[in-house]
Every structure is written in structure tokens, then in C-alpha cells.
Amino acid sequence: MGKKSPFSDIEAARYPPPPPPTFYMPPPTQWFSWLVPLFFLANIAMFVYSMYINDCPGYLNEDDCLWYQYLGKFSFQPFNENPLLGPSVRTLRVLGALERDLVVGENEVWRFITCMFLHAGVIHLLANMFSLLFIGVRLENEFGFLKIGVLYLLSGFGGSLLSILHMGDVKAPNTVSVGASGALFGLLGAMLSELLTNWTIYLNKCAALTSLLLIIGLNLAVGFIPHVDNSAHIGGFLSGFFLGFVILMRPQFGYVNNKYIPPGYDAKRKSKYKGYQYFFLVLSVITLLIGYAYGLATLYIGESNDVFSYLGNTES
């Protein structure tokens, strides 16, 4: 009789071990965008209110106001005063435009923020609001209202700070700065740093980087148009660029959170962030703190030194 095959009995059969389980992070949920549309409505409402307060016919001849017969009290200032179809500098100053003498001399620091919700005219407003919806809604859908709100306001503050420092170099009387451009360029800067710091999760990296750099270059080129304050654009962009490394950092590709691994499995997992992400985070925090502190010190302490030196010269 031949030997009995060890696999003839099903109870004695040997099966290959099952493959180790593979765990994946569920796709991130999309946030509902409500803060960016709220910023959009706030800017529109402030422009309508500024035109109501402006009341061009109340200060000028009705024939001088643009389209008075159709707009009445909301008619625009003459082209020679405001070519962007908007209110006067006087109105913008009353409502919170950024002006060096009022911020430094009168300590009206709230103008750093209020100027972001004012616009010089319809053309200025439409250009900024189109960019806000195009860029801001996507970012809020991905990262949520809290991160984008902080990014928007801090970038706008950085743009206002560099803009008011630039006013001291220009030495032009009655110079004010308004607009959401600094905050919008901050969103663009954050998109660039987000692409760099979250490099591992992008598939077509070169195409994403090229298209983003093209958009940034076109927007910066607008700053060279006369009467456009490019310093606010640059300040907002740099602030947003470094803030993106801090606020918009995401886990690297392949990372799995512990709560998505069933109990009893000892799965080998990747670290949540890469070393270069931590490096850029620390470097960006230091750069932002130094940049904001240096700008404020230059604005206030430098201004005080100028006053003291002037008083010393008059007393002598």
C-alpha cells in the first residue's frame, strides 16, 4: 500500500498565511465654505455704505458727480479725483483707511484691519472680490474656516504694515491705503508654501507649481499699474507664504491615524510629518515674529526717534 498523502485529509491541510492587512486613511471631508462668502458680502456692503456716506452731490456740484441722474446720492466722484469709480479720499479716511499719521500719531491701530474692507472704487472692488471667491473658497473647503480666517487677517495685517512703512518713504501728503489685496496675496503665498510643504501628496507636482507661479506672477504684475500699492501686495504675499508653512501643514502621503487601525494589529506606520515640514514650520514662525516685530518697531520707535530729534533741533 502506498503512503497516504498528508493533504488528503482536509483537517491536515496547510494553507498559506493571509496577507497583512492594509490600512488607509479615509479621504478628508470637505468643509462648507461660509467665511469667505461672508468676507465677500462684508466688502460689498462696506463699499455701498462708503458711497452712501460719500454723498458726492452733497459736497460737489451735481453736474460734476458721475452718473448723478441714475445713482443720485450714490454717484461717483469725478474722474480727475477718483478714476476707479468710487468715493473720495475724505470718505475713505473717515471709514478707516490706512494713513500713517492717524495710525502712529493718533494710535488708531484698528486701521490695520478696517482698511482691508474698504475699496477705492468699483473696478478695485470687482478685481479683488473675483480673486477672493476664486482662491478663498477652495482653500476654505480644504482647510476650514478657522485656518483660512487667521491666514486672511494676518496676511492682511502684514500687507498693511509694509504699506504704511512704504508711505513714510514716499512722503506724499494725504496718502491712504485701502483694499483686500494684501490678504488676497497672502492666500496666494499660502497656496505656494502649501504646495511645497505638502509636496508628497501631489501627483502632478510640476504642473501644479507652474500654474501657481503663473497666477502669482500675473497678480504681482498688476501692482505696477499707477496708483496701485505694490508694497501691500508684497507684504501680504510674504506673510501668507510663511503662514502657510505653519497653518496649512498636512500629514504626508501614507500616514494612517491610530484610530483607523483595528485593535490587536501592530501596523508599521509612517510618521505624520516629514522632517522638512517641521524645519519650515520652525523657520517660518521665527521669520514671522521677527518680521512683524521689526516692522512695528520701525513704525513706532523709529517715528518716536524722528520726533525727539526734531524737538531737540528746535530747542537748540
Rank of each mutant, 00 (worst) to 15 (best):
K4L: 13
R111V: 02
M249Q: 14
A183P: 01
A190Y: 00
V282A: 13
A120G: 11
F23L: 06
G244I: 02
H119D: 03
L132E: 02
N82W: 06
Y15N: 08
F253E: 14
D306C: 04
I225T: 13
K73Y: 08
P262Q: 10
E194W: 12
E81I: 09
L125T: 03
P173E: 08
L212W: 07
L125K: 02
L132A: 00
Q277V: 01
V228Q: 12
P87V: 04
Q77K: 13
F279G: 11
Y24E: 15
F79M: 11
V122A: 10
L162S: 01
F245K: 02
L71Y: 12
V178Q: 01
F224V: 12
N54L: 02
L192R: 05
G189C: 02
V122R: 09
D9Q: 15
T22K: 11
Q77T: 10
L188C: 00
G302Q: 08
L299Q: 03
R250L: 14
V307T: 14
N219W: 14
P83F: 02
F185P: 04
Y59C: 05
S181N: 12
L66D: 08
G302E: 08
T114K: 10
N204W: 06
V246S: 07
S211T: 11
V36N: 02
Y68R: 03
V104N: 00
Y255H: 10
I113F: 08
K171L: 15
F23S: 06
A172F: 14
